[in-house]
Design a protein around this nucleic acid. Structure first.
Lengths: 116, 116
DNA sequence: AAAACCTTGACACTCCCGTGGTAACGTTGG
DNA sequence: CCAACGTTACCACGGGAGTGTCAAGGTTTT
């Protein structure tokens, strides 16, 4: 299993060398380095790069969105806050008196935002 | 229960009227309408708007990122594909010497120090 | 009816993202 | 040694996000 240089890796993955460096800066895929600083791409990285390209194409996504998804995975506090907001309903119950509903919502949001 | 017009809602949530319309376009929060087409904001929407603003501030996010999170929640196929890519070997490959990079950094620093 | 609202649509401006290119300089291989 | 390749650091450009403002027109209030 040999390792490829950045231009070779670019040729076999469909990315440009420029983009491989850019991807590295986003933190999505770091290449190993030789002692003199050259990037080296092994089979695992090559496959991951191909899969990434296909992922973006299939769902029409950008690198920043994948980076955001990674942040969601690693930052549970942020993930929970975002999901709480999203799941906080589009439904307004008529069977609850307005004042009670409002107070309930306010308290829920206060609790949510103070989770630190 | 009082419902507010767009400018009143803006005043009590910290958004501008312009942004409330923009938020509606992103699909994140739709306001109800009067028979003549005026937007009306109830207590639930107002609280949700305040929470949204705080959410973006605390985690330094944009509306498009929240919209993407919503898409992740609703599109299980995309969510699974993204998570599969993220969880696909996030580790350093074994066949690459682990301290090449460190050694490079060390030598670079030495060179810089010698130059100064 | 006039003032003070609301609506959509358009122009504009600033950032950031994704890309390519080039310059200046170090590394590798024939 | 020198050609070919690697590195980082810039400049540039098109497009989308976020935001203000203004115009033209309908609605509500006084």
């Amino acid at each position: 299993m040999e390792s490829l240089t950045i231009h070779e890796a670019a040729a076999t993955t469909g990315w440009s060398a420029r983009m491989l460096r850019y991807i590295e800066r986003t933190g999505l895929l770091m290449a190993a380095r030789t002692a003199s600083g050259y990037r080296v791409y092994g089979p695992g990285e090559l496959q991951r790069l191909r899969t990434l390209k296909e992922l973006l194409r299939r769902f029409d996504l950008g690198l920043s969105e994948i980076a955001f998804a990674a942040r969601l995975e690693n930052d549970s506090e942020m993930r929970e806050a975002v999901q709480a907001w999203l799941h906080d309903q589009p439904h307004r119950p008529e069977h609850v008196k307005p004042d009670d509903w409002l107070r309930f919502e306010q308290e829920k949001h206060e609790r949510l935002l103070q989770a630190a």
